[in-house]
Nucleic acid binder design. Structure first.
Lengths: 314, 314
DNA sequence: CTGAAAGCGCTTACAG
DNA sequence: CTGAAAGCGCTTACAG
């Protein structure tokens, strides 16, 4: 059994409220009393019960972050930066995983309603629809979305300026000679859709040949005679697509343009460009918005963070 | 303001205790009363306050996992498996990071003393010494260590059978022709030390030439005439060591023997072996031990999990 | 079947 | 400077 204020009160022969005050450095308690209480407390290894404190204060100083898993840098990096940054601001970041499972995701949201944290950062999956969020949004619970946006409007989101970033990426590929674009970004979530749209727009505006494809879709024969750029959300996909469809017969030149990571084997590529997201700024911005929300400001908006850099790997 | 039992009691014109019972499916409350209460509750979006519940139950159904960061699979993988596994058993796994910082680590331990969780999994760093653990251990707080062992004895630890695993790894290298071993495993923590010792033992017993080295230590010229095996905790190190010292003049043949990951560029190696740890079994075993502990069993012991497999990558 | 009461461990006006 | 009291939101014997 843990030591409680009550125990200390009996031992020190003072009221429990005096104990409480002494331990919280209330200047009103006499130095001598305070000293006695503090020594006894450390002697017995007293440690406050946070659940009890939270009950009276109405806050936990905990913030949750709800992510799918940790293998993807898009989820992992913001989490790590947020943890550091929030600790400096007096909050604890607690990471929870939903493993791409809708039931688990909703379960975690319901925990938030049960007031386990003062707010939460969420990297959602598109398909987990709005109803689960409603109680939280109606209750004005501080929620900041990162990277992806949920299906409904009017919620605070911090994400990369994907339209601009995609434009830059394609421009580089074109400058390196690409005259045919295979766009593999798909439409799995709001970010994917934004990138696909932007890529399409770029190609159309600049009169560049392109096709939207995915990993199980062979490219039209056209690419054989062209300098092809593979545009993907992760270099892994470019590598896989190349292995699956482009190696034999090898096209003249293949360029990879991806976000965050290069293909694991870059040797078959002519050029490799990587748009590196600025996860630190994303985290910092999300933390600031969260604190505003906790402070009572209502700030629904989408904040876009520019790419950290556009690297040429090869 | 969140809806409380008190609010519901006023609205439904029954005592707060009846509300509580109805919402927890107590068979004693009349069906009609129960129905009324439940509809009102969902209407108003009632949601129990977990802090209050925890206060009376004395448990949180939360388990913490304290890790340094998430870039290393040795920390990330057990975390992900544990999260899945514990949810099935009715617990929430909350991940917290200490970012290789001793102060943060101790701060997180103190939170545990404040009863924020019913137990904790810890992947420690060697240098963060025993005192911070003492209150927890004395209070018999359920603690399960994963991978690394803290500096003191008598605590429950789940780790890979590193002695056997290292033996296997070196045996493979020797079978592939290695007659000179550069042992890069170091002594950064209990696992590193165990691997280094085991490697040394293996070489000595089998009459194989070897040297203990690190990334800033050139190998003796001997390796030039030998088939050299680089033994490391991660393929990254083997790659770096090769780049730094072995490339020019290139030795006859270099073999890599590492844990969990291969060198990112395997082309300069003659053979590449990887000992793959069984993080799923480690997590499963740790979860079981935790539940035992929470159930009141005192089970200090070190459980060793065999390697999942020994892969030959090249 | 339901209510009144005590209690979980703490904090904080309010008196004195 | 300190104590008695009320309260945070909930649960659970104990009566009736």
């Amino acid at each position: 059994m843990a030591v409680t204020l009550k125990n200390l009160a009996e031992i020190c022969n003072v009221d429990i409220s005096t104990i409480s005050r002494a331990l919280r450095n209330d200047p009103r308690v006499r130095a001598a009393t305070c000293a006695l209480i503090r020594t006894k407390a450390t002697e017995l290894g007293y440690t406050p019960n946070l659940a009890a404190r939270n009950l009276v204060s109405g806050k936990t100083l905990n913030l949750w972050m709800i992510v799918s898993e940790l293998n993807n840098p898009v989820e992992r990096e913001p989490a790590q930066f947020l943890s550091r940054s929030l600790r400096r601001k007096g909050y604890e970041l607690l990471l929870t995983l939903y493993h791409s499972d809708a039931r688990t995701f909703n379960h975690l949201l319901s925990r938030l309603s049960q007031q386990v944290a003062d707010g939460a950062f969420i990297i959602p999956s598109l398909e987990y629809s709005a109803p689960a969020y409603l109680p939280l949004l109606n209750g004005n619970f501080p929620l900041v979305f990162i990277d992806r946006q949920p299906v409904f409007e009017n919620c605070t989101t911090v994400t990369t300026a994907n339209q601009a970033a995609t434009g830059e990426l394609l421009r580089q590929c074109a400058a390196a000679g690409a005259d045919y674009f295979i766009i593999l970004t798909g439409n799995g979530d709001s970010v994917a859709r934004m990138r696909s749209e932007s890529a399409l727009k770029f190609c159309t505006e600049n009169n560049l040949a392109f096709t939207m494809a995915n990993l199980s879709q062979a490219p039209p024969p056209e690419f054989l005679t062209k300098t092809t750029a593979l545009i993907s959300s992760s270099g892994i996909f470019a590598g896989k697509y190349l292995d699956a469809f482009l190696r034999q017969p090898a096209p003249r030149r293949v360029i990879s343009g991806s976000f965050d990571s290069a293909p694991s084997d870059i040797s078959p590529f002519y050029r490799v460009f990587v748009g590196v997201q600025d996860f630190e700024s994303i985290a910092e911005t999300a933390a600031d918005l969260m604190l505003e929300k906790i402070g009572g400001k209502n700030n629904p908006q989408t904040v876009e963070i520019p790419l950290k850099k556009l690297r040429r790997i090869k």
